[in-house]
């Protein structure tokens, strides 16, 4: 029998995600996809999940399995998950039968968690992906965030091809100097990699605003640039000096100067940093970033 999930409470920006909708930049669509890929992969590995996940945000999610049964894997960040009121260890797996309730509330750390099932979330495959783009308002569940009252069917499907997740590192977030790094004075670049920043409360799937030491980028304002391609992890500096780290639902192109780009191996870890957390950046070479990827994938 088809399993049906009913969402009874959803934190803002809860959405259906997978690894992303690639190859569409020229059409004006950035890839979207799981903010924490390692979390997405870990949740799926435990239950041989087909493509797709419910990405939960910091406020959590409540749901009830209205019909059928399924196994669910959960991982990413740190959340408190209860099955019919009984707490289960996060990350982990459990089996749900008709009438069972999951209640997920924030734990000690992290912004994003993933629920994956042993059946496929039945939303249309759009341009090769199930991912919801909050920017283009397409994909996933009618192109929008999940909300209380939504019902999601699960259908049987082949497990997603296994992929190894990047092992999360520790310490400063490593970056590669960015597209416009040469437009920033050497002294500004030096302060960028020696000063503490903080994660602000303004963060979503498109970008994370940072709190910066006063006047750090004041002399860099008013650069007039030709609009150019953006990649996830790009750190752009607005005209008023605010740094924003662009995330998976980034605009495909942009005209603000970009000083650096977060490396792939540290992107997931950065995405999970909560508002108020201190963050420091350290420059590495492209070659070093590739070595980190190779070693972390072993």
């Amino acid at each position: 029998m088809t399993a049906i999930l009913a969402i009874t409470r959803a934190g803002p920006l809860t959405s259906v995600q997978d690894l992303g909708r690639f190859g569409m930049l020229g059409n004006g669509i950035s890839a979207a996809g799981a903010m924490d890929r390692a979390g997405y992969l870990a949740a799926g590995e435990a239950v041989d999940a087909p493509v797709g996940a419910i990405e939960i945000t910091r406020a959590g999610l409540d749901l009830v399995l209205e019909q059928g049964s399924c196994r669910v894997g959960f991982a990413g960040g740190d959340f408190i998950l209860r099955r019919n009121g009984e707490p289960l260890a996060w990350p982990g797996t459990t089996r749900l039968s008709s009438g069972d309730r999951l209640t997920i509330t924030p734990g000690a750390a992290g912004n994003y968690g993933y629920l994956r099932f042993d059946a496929q979330i039945d939303v249309p495959m759009l341009l090769g992906s199930l991912a919801t783009s909050s920017r283009a308002q397409l994909g996933g569940f009618s192109g929008r965030a999940l909300a209380a009252g939504d019902r999601i069917r699960l259908k049987s499907a082949q497990p997603e091809r296994p992929m190894t997740a990047c092992h999360p590192g520790a310490g400063p977030i490593r970056v590669i100097w960015g597209l416009h790094a040469d437009l920033f004075a050497a002294e500004v670049r030096n302060r960028f990699v020696t000063s503490p920043f903080t994660i602000s409360a303004q963060l979503d799937r498109m970008g994370v605003r940072l709190g910066a030491p006063p006047n750090m980028f004041a002399s860099s304002a008013n650069l007039s640039l030709v609009s150019d391609a953006i990649v996830p992890g790009d750190i752009q500096i607005l005209g008023d000096g605010t740094p924003i780290v662009l995330m998976r639902d980034h605009q495909p192109t942009g005209g603000y100067p970009r000083i650096a780009t977060v490396i792939s191996a540290d992107f997931d870890r950065f995405a999970q940093l909560r508002p108020g957390t201190a963050v420091a950046f350290r420059p590495v070479t492209v070659e070093h970033a590739h070595q980190l990827l190779r070693s972390s994938l072993k």
Binding site: A229, V231, G233, T261, I263, S264, H290
Partner: peptide, 8 residues
């Protein structure tokens, strides 16, 4: 380089 997975 644009990060570690893209070239401009």
């Amino acid at each position: 380089p644009l990060g570690d997975s893209a070239l401009l």
